[in-house]
């Protein structure tokens, strides 16, 4: 870990020194344990504040459409960005959806060993205060007032990382290779497969129970790199698609449409789940879509800059069994 962090810092330092970039987006130490924070680094700032550890959870691609809105010009210097596998897949989507020009990015790719789920560890601490954290290749050591606790990373990774098929970035300018866990990615995802295998009524019940927790803070949307709409449908007033109340029908509407808007685009980075303050397992539903798209169209978003997204094309052989008579 340290070695990689060192490599990142060196690379970034050189990029600034060579005047290749003016800004770099990475991570810095968080104010809470088990957390890091996105860091916008410019030349004047301290490059040594950059960190790399198992808690670099944010998908940094989310900032790209925000800081370079619709820029196509080649005049300005590229933006440097640190990318895990999932971040790079998001970037591929953003490039394909013309939110950023590939030339305007300088990507430092990192083969990602997976991100540790902070909540999973916290749930094992019975509210005890963390004094310090140590991390080695395979485990996290949490120091408490009354001793230490060791957590094997493999067991405490985020769900999306546990079944990540592409931990190494699909696009990059520099690749920093680290240790990658040899986790076997399975499609469909076992968790969502279990969900999919349930009868429709039960699935609906699960969906309803999950989203009923929603307080409509839109963090899931705002943390998602795919959600760059200038005006989200959920907030449009002309027309107003859904009410602003917290009623169940409104949150269901919001989440269904949000999930559908991810069809063929979601790279399963898990940012939405991590952002949700109400612990809604949003990935359960988006991942179903990911698997479905892969199965139906053989398409995985974020892997290639060339292939055509399923929703942008039509083939007479497309499956149509969903067109059924109303019951």
């Amino acid at each position: 870990m340290r070695q990689i962090e060192y490599e990142i810092i060196n690379t970034v330092e050189k990029l600034f020194a060579d005047k290749k970039i003016d800004i770099f987006i990475g991570y810095k130490k968080g104010t809470l344990s088990l957390q890091t924070s996105p860091y916008f680094l410019s030349e004047q700032d301290d490059v040594r504040k950059l960190v790399w550890n198992s808690f670099c959870s944010n998908n940094l691609a989310v900032f790209i459409p925000r800081i370079i809105p619709n820029s196509k010009s080649k005049e300005s210097k590229p933006v440097g960005i640190l990318c895990k596998g999932c971040d790079s897949r998001s970037l591929v989507g953003l490039i394909k959806e013309k939110q950023i020009n590939r030339d305007n990015l300088f990507i430092i790719g990192i083969s990602c060993p997976g991100i540790v789920d902070r909540r999973k560890i916290l749930s094992r601490l019975d509210g005890k205060e963390i004094i310090g954290i140590d991390e080695d290749a395979d485990s996290i050591v949490v120091k408490l007032k009354d001793g230490e606790k060791r957590f094997e990373k493999e067991e405490y990774l985020c769900e999306s990382c546990l079944n990540c098929a592409h931990p190494t970035p699909s696009i990059y300018d520099v690749l920093i290779r680290g240790a990658v866990y040899s986790l076997q990615a399975i499609t469909p995802d076992p968790i969502t497969k279990d969900f999919s295998s349930k009868p429709r009524e039960e699935r609906w019940k699960i969906f309803e129970t999950e989203v009923s927790k929603c307080i409509r803070c839109y963090a899931c949307r705002d943390a998602c790199p795919n959600c760059y709409c200038k005006e989200c449908f959920a907030e449009q007033t002309k027309p107003q698609w859904l009410g602003v109340s917290k009623g169940l029908s409104e949150v269901i509407f919001y989440h269904i449409v949000r999930i559908l808007h991810q069809a063929g685009r979601c790279v399963d980075c898990g940012a939405c789940v991590r952002a949700c303050p109400m612990d809604i397992n949003l990935r359960l539903f988006t991942r179903v879509m990911v698997d479905e798209v892969k199965e139906r169209f053989g398409y995985e978003p974020g892997i290639s800059l060339k292939d055509t997204p399923p929703l942008a094309t039509f083939s007479a052989d497309d499956k149509q069994e969903f067109m059924t008579e109303p019951e």
């Binding site: 939110q99 200038k230 005006e231 997204p309 942008a312 094309t313």
Partner: peptide, 20 residues
């Protein structure tokens, strides 16, 4: 004010009536 220029409409227009 709403268009983000993602280009999906450009791809799917059967009449090639949309450009970015």
């Amino acid at each position: 004010t709403r268009c983000s220029g993602c280009g999906l409409c450009v791809d799917i227009c059967a009449y090639r009536a949309i450009e970015l």
